[in-house]
């Protein structure tokens, strides 16, 4: 569990922030669901737009957070990850599989094989890349680099909506 002293000072913590709602408490762990913060679902076309339907699958994005701030079910909080973490995460999830996938295709092509073998080599490279990405993600997770951090409580929806309207 992360001690309170280890928490970064929110005033100088350069973070990518997001809103989340506490949906369950299990012992010392609070389960959070991210809130939809983009315009998706909020614009005039939300009923006809498929993007809002995709974005509303919040249950699938539920994640745990150590409950050192005595959070209660229904609380809305602001969480954050360090700015550099997002770039590291993108590199891990996308760059590694891409490089191995392209490498597989290029090597097969340079070896003189046809397009069919190059496609198979690319798929094999992609599978290897996803495996490597999983290993790296495990390592980063063990170091706590991918864990979101509690920053502060967010105002209730009624308050924030009235602010937006003004």
């Amino acid at each position: 569990m992360q001690a309170e002293d280890d928490m970064p000072d929110p005033s100088n913590f350069a973070a990518v922030e997001g809103l989340a709602k506490v949906v369950a408490i299990e012992g010392a762990v609070a389960w959070l669901e991210p809130e939809q913060t983009t315009s998706c679902g909020g614009c005039a076309s939300s009923l006809a737009c498929g993007a809002s339907a995709f974005g509303n699958r919040l249950h699938a994005r539920r994640f745990p957070l150590d409950n050192v701030h005595e959070l209660k079910v229904g609380d809305r909080i602001v969480i954050g990850v360090q700015e550099s973490t997002l770039v590291t995460a993108s590199m891990t999830a996308y760059a590694i599989p891409l490089v191995t996938m392209l490498g597989g295709g290029i090597i097969a092509h340079l070896a003189g094989f046809g397009d069919g073998v190059a496609i198979l080599a690319s798929v094999a490279g992609l599978a290897a890349g996803l495996f490597l990405a999983r290993l790296r993600a495990k390592k980063l997770n063990a170091q706590g680099q991918l864990t979101p951090i509690y920053l502060r409580h967010a105002p209730s929806p009624a308050q924030s909506e009235s602010c937006e309207l003004n």
């Binding site: 699938a60 994005r61 979101p148």
Partner: peptide, 21 residues
């Protein structure tokens, strides 16, 4: 695949994916 690689990664990067469709 991102969800399988790491749930925290999916939490961070998953918001961009539906927009790409």
């Amino acid at each position: 695949s991102v969800r399988k690689i790491s749930p925290p990664l999916f939490q961070m990067l998953g918001i961009y994916l539906p927009l790409i469709t």
